[in-house]
């Protein structure tokens, strides 16, 4: 395998680490952390997509050429995606606190009022 693809694969491995957390852990907080890791992996992947070897940050200033910049678009997209992630995380933490209030536990095997 070509070595230059390695970061992308590591990124997907990172995603799978998050997925492992979501699927295997019993504690709600750990599940949330797994979800957040998944999200960061996706964001990291998006940034890596726009990266160019030896590129500089995509800021336009009067005395520099725009040819050696990294791709600025994924960075803008990641910012949007982070904001969305913030909203989701805030909501899920709120729900987790409420669940703790109702059930008195964070263990999902004990939280089972629903059948499915």
């Amino acid at each position: 395998m070509n070595n230059s693809y390695l970061p992308y694969f590591l990124c997907l491995v990172f995603f799978c680490v998050g997925l492992y957390g979501v699927l295997r852990k019993r504690n709600i907080i750990k599940i949330i952390i797994g979800l957040v890791i998944c999200e960061y992996a996706a964001n990291l992947f998006l940034v890596l997509v726009g990266y160019k070897m030896g590129g500089r940050s995509p800021l336009y200033s009067p005395d520099q050429s725009i040819l050696d910049m990294v791709d600025p678009l994924p960075q803008a997209l990641v910012l949007t995606s982070i904001v969305i992630g913030l909203a989701t995380t805030a909501l899920v933490v709120g729900i987790a606190i409420r669940i703790y209030e109702k059930y008195g536990t964070f263990d999902i095997t004990k939280i089972s009022k629903l059948k499915g």
Binding site: L19, L35, I95, I99, I111, K113, L114
Partner: peptide, 17 residues
């Protein structure tokens, strides 16, 4: 209520994934 929060949590995790 308890059931709603539990359902919402389940839905949220799967759907965010």
């Amino acid at each position: 209520e308890a059931e709603e929060l539990e359902a919402s949590f389940k839905y949220l995790v799967m759907s965010s994934f």
